[in-house]
């Protein structure tokens, strides 16, 4: 009997939502378990790190890694699984573009730690305790992974073969990706295993889009009673559909919530933020300086809106620990 291909599923700086979507494969997962050997999946089964370390290099057919790379443990596990795997798939927006944790890069390490361990209204920490990489407790040394000081995407830390964006990616796309890898039916390295169109192309509201937008100020979805069939942007509600890759099944749009951009940029763009920024301002029809300022000021935290899922992969936010990437 030939050996079944080995698959590893691991979450780095992730919320486990991506892992949960693998669970949502339901019956497909049972069929998959017949054809592959899942050697690592902490969400669903016990595993020993030493077992992975003892494997031959390249022994694992596919590693599916979700989450951003935030601390020393993530760096080590990403490097280990890269070494042991023939194909590495970055699953989910955090692994692909940095995701919501990547917003941490908008403040430095100190500011972030102050907020999380001192200033947040829910924090009670009179002694100012901060996590330490090493602590002596009763003569024993306890260790914690150390924060990198920066949130990285997976491909800024290890060579990454394929990408599957989404927060989380829909189960169907995950199923397709795994099937494609097992069948060896893959696009060129570096491809995203998701549709290539922009979300507006598949949006059910597109037919109601006016020929010319007339936005005079921005509104947020909770401030209005949005028409469930009308184009959000036409109503001045910020929707990142024009600059975001489709493939999510319009999950947010269908529950009357505008696109926030979790699928990342359409192919060919360095991040969706600059594209969307240009789109958004071109839709504003106000003319005088004071009107322009008032209209744009009506969008609170524009950087947070535009870079919600992609700060670490953005032009200004990106940093790479890989030499060839850093030079590019």
């Amino acid at each position: 009997m030939t050996e079944k291909p080995k698959i590893a599923i691991y979450g780095l700086g992730a919320c486990a939502g991506c892992d949960q979507t693998v669970v949502d494969l339901n019956e497909i997962l049972l069929q998959l378990a017949e054809t592959v050997d899942i050697v690592l999946w902490p969400l669903a089964m016990d595993f020993k790190l030493s077992r992975i370390q003892a494997m031959q290099d390249g022994e694992v057919a596919l590693s599916i890694l979700s989450g951003a790379v935030i601390n020393s443990d993530h760096h080590e596990m990403a490097a280990l699984l890269r070494r042991k795997s023939r194909i590495v798939l970055a699953m989910g927006t955090c692994a692909c573009f940095g995701g919501v944790p990547g917003l941490a890069n908008f403040c430095g390490r100190e500011e972030m730690f102050n907020q999380v361990y001192r200033d947040a209204p829910t924090v009670t920490n009179p002694d100012g305790v901060r996590p330490q990489p090493e602590t002596d407790v009763g003569g024993r040394k306890l260790t914690l992974p150390e924060f990198s000081g920066h949130v990285f995407t997976l491909d800024q830390v290890i060579d990454t073969d394929y990408y599957l964006p989404g927060c989380p990616p829909p189960p169907a796309l995950i199923g397709n990706a795994i099937t494609a890898v097992l069948a060896g039916d893959l696009p060129p390295k570096g491809s995203s295993l998701a549709p290539r169109k922009a979300l507006c192309d598949t949006c059910p509201r597109n037919s109601r889009k006016p020929g010319r937008m007339d936005i005079r100020y921005f509104r947020r979805i909770h401030e209005v009673d949005a028409d469930p069939d009308e184009c959000f942007l036409a109503a001045g509600i910020v929707c990142l559909g024009p600059a975001t890759r489709s493939g999510c099944g319009e999950a947010c749009i269908r529950i009357n919530v505008p696109c926030r951009g979790c699928f990342g940029p359409v192919p060919g763009g360095v991040g969706s933020a600059p594209k969307f920024l240009s789109t958004l301002t071109s839709l504003l029809t106000v003319e005088r300086d004071d009107e322009i300022e008032e209209a744009i000021d009506s969008l609170p935290d524009p950087a947070g809106y535009l870079y919600r899922f992609c700060q670490p992969s953005s032009i200004l936010g990106r940093k790479s620990l890989r030499e060839e990437e850093a030079e590019a």
């Binding site: 920024l277 958004l280 744009i296 524009p302």
Partner: peptide, 8 residues
């Protein structure tokens, strides 16, 4: 565009 880029 420049006004919004400044904020970003």
């Amino acid at each position: 565009k420049a006004y919004l880029i400044r904020k970003v």
